[in-house]
């Protein structure tokens, strides 16, 4: 399997303050890659570099390369809308639009000029996100009437609706109860046969359950990256071992 992303010498600054230092890593296609580390280690910042979400924040500066399918997405002639369209994202807190369930899923296809059957697409995405059976009778009810776990799966369905190649997830389960979390993790495992998934999490057990590969960050630096099982069993770096065994974090 090839790489979805090749990150080279990535540095990120918030104003004067540097938050990522010289990150070099590859993210495999159609696999789940977890990014772990204590809060403030730069893992969310890294994730947001992968779909150029930082463009929207004044004062953020990115140097280095993020190659997506071989092409640096920070090149001047790359359209960030196109990148974000091909690389979907699910956020830390469920953030459905204050519209109906149907309109939430249909939003992306609509703005991107989808010409097919919208009803079928919405149903397919809601099924993929394991939400269809719970909402099929009230597709036109407000998305805000759903529970937190349902809202997060709706956000996943919404991201799937533009048929992205990659799904970035920024601590998607941190606001969910254990049952909703388990459902979401099952979904991640199901989706990885078709999508590249990058998952930021502060929950090491979660990384252990779902990730094929894991990258450990500390203070803005990539400390260690490798197949999850190997890394959890035999971390090469002392820092990784200390974090995994709960010495800090």
């Amino acid at each position: 399997m090839g790489n979805a992303f090749e990150i080279r010498n990535l540095n990120v600054y918030y104003g004067q303050h540097q938050v990522l230092y010289d990150v070099n890593m590859n993210i495999r296609e159609r696999a789940v890659t977890a990014i772990i580390g204590p809060s403030g280690c730069g893992k969310s910042t890294l994730l947001r570099c992968l779909n150029r979400m930082h463009d929207l924040q004044p004062g953020v500066r990115v140097t280095g390369e993020v190659r997506f399918k071989g092409r640096n997405i920070y090149d001047d002639d790359v359209d960030p809308m196109e990148i974000r369209y091909r690389i979907g994202m699910v956020f830390q807190k469920p953030n459905p639009f204050p519209k109906s369930i149907f309109e939430n899923v249909a939003f992306g296809p609509r703005i991107n000029g989808y010409r097919g059957n919208l009803n079928e697409l919405v149903e397919r995405c809601l099924r993929q996100a394991a939400l269809w059976d719970e909402v099929k009778d009230r597709l036109h009810a407000s998305a805000l009437s759903l529970s937190g776990g349902q809202q997060q799966r709706l956000c996943l369905a919404r991201a799937l609706a533009v048929e992205p190649e990659v799904i970035l997830m920024d601590e998607p389960a941190s606001a969910l109860d254990p049952i909703s979390t388990a459902k979401l993790e099952d979904l991640i495992l199901e989706l990885k046969s078709r999508y590249t998934i990058v998952l930021v999490t502060h929950n090491m057990q979660q990384a252990g359950r779902v990730a094929d590969e894991t990258a450990f960050f500390l203070n803005g630096r990539l400390i260690e990256m490798g197949p999850t099982r190997e890394m959890f069993a035999n971390p090469r770096e002392k820092k990784t071992e200390e974090y995994l065994t709960g010495r800090f974090g």
């Binding site: 974000r84 369209y85 979907g88 994202m89 953030n95 992306g108 703005i111 991107n112 991201a159």
Partner: peptide
């Protein structure tokens, strides 16, 4: 909330689409 804007941007929306939709 900013999170709603980000959700739309993450779907490939332009600034105008985010504002109007």
């Amino acid at each position: 909330p900013r999170s709603l804007r980000e959700a739309a941007y993450a779907l490939g929306a332009t600034r105008l689409e985010v504002a109007l939709k």
